[in-house]
Design a protein around this nucleic acid. Structure first.
Lengths: 177, 177
DNA sequence: TATTGTTATACTCTATAACTATA
DNA sequence: TATAGTTATAGAGTATAACAATA
């Protein structure tokens, strides 16, 4: 295969840009598609801003949750992140394998672990959090006064969509069957 | 395992709701986290609204693109969706296996396929599009006049984040290494 | 040489199911 | 009987690399 295999692509993989000449039809009008495009772009920019840590947005979120809630149980971590127990396990395995977190016996329940940042984890996370905060500040700065309204709108959207999908007359289908 | 294994969970899997008693720290202030929460909620509501079709948002988008661009090449489909060639192949395989789409020889290039909806695909997609449009309209209706501004803000956000991650002085890191 | 699509493979994410130990 | 965590497995999703046919 040629050396320029992916370098010559007009759109690099991962980047969801409108391709000239392609008709997006109904997609352009959908709120859901706009959210997807925005999240895609944010995701790529997050990776750029945190390249030296090699941490995904989700793993970053898990670290922050452990940091702010010392002794957090795996199960509660999963709930806060919308994950199954087994997913919380994998996430915790990663955090401990990377040396960010340690499992200690949870007081009062011999079945459970409490999660705690290690000393090194605290140090690394502090720098990582600063990088993420800078990344987010840059976005907000570029958005100007629109930024705050956008964040409020997103929070309302999450609430509205949740209400819709969990309304009593709707049958929530949790997972792809 | 008990019958109620996941039914008793306060937060069903997939749903990213704020858990009382958990401190989210910096996450609550991040634009990126607000986008993630919104997308998570929208995703679940999309699945509820389109349950009878068993189509993911991405597969839906691919179907719309083929529908609006008869004869679309696999490669261009991939570009429009931010996918590698191999991803566009899998997506196309799925669309043809489900009977939505057929590959025909592309005129003028014996290497390429042109993608076309089948007659049955057109019929099914028409109903699916109506369901998705209804789902989106319900969201916009619940948001009221905030909806249009939110959509515009999301489009601007996608643009700003893309500009940031592809700026010449930044090194874009496309994929997780 | 470059491009289109394919095959084979691997890794991440996240689910289900069955299991252990404890409550 | 229910809960916390684990193990094993499966299925999306998406990448990389090497390949064939064509341009």
């Amino acid at each position: 295969m040629s050396k320029t295999d992916s370098l010559n692509d007009i759109t690099p993989e991962g980047l969801m840009l409108p391709v000239p000449g392609v008709d997006y039809g109904a997609l352009d009008g959908l709120l859901g598609y706009a959210v997807r495009r925005a999240q895609n772009a944010l995701y790529l920019d997050f990776y750029r801003a945190t390249a030296e840590w090699d941490v995904s947005p989700q793993r970053f979120a898990a670290l922050v949750l452990v940091s702010r809630n010392p002794g957090l149980r795996q199960g509660l971590l999963g709930q806060a992140m919308g994950l199954h127990r087994s997913g919380a396990l994998r996430l915790t395995d990663w955090m401990t394998a990377q040396g960010y977190v340690e499992r200690r016996d949870a007081p009062g329940d011999a079945r459970a672990w409490g999660l705690y940042l290690t000393a090194g984890g605290k140090r690394r996370l502090a720098r990582l959090e600063a990088a993420v905060a800078g990344h987010d500040r840059a976005l907000l700065a570029a958005l100007g006064e629109q930024g705050a309204a956008l964040k409020a709108g997103l929070e309302r959207l999450a609430w509205v969509a949740t209400a819709q999908s969990t309304a009593p007359d709707n049958k929530p289908r949790r997972h792809k069957p």
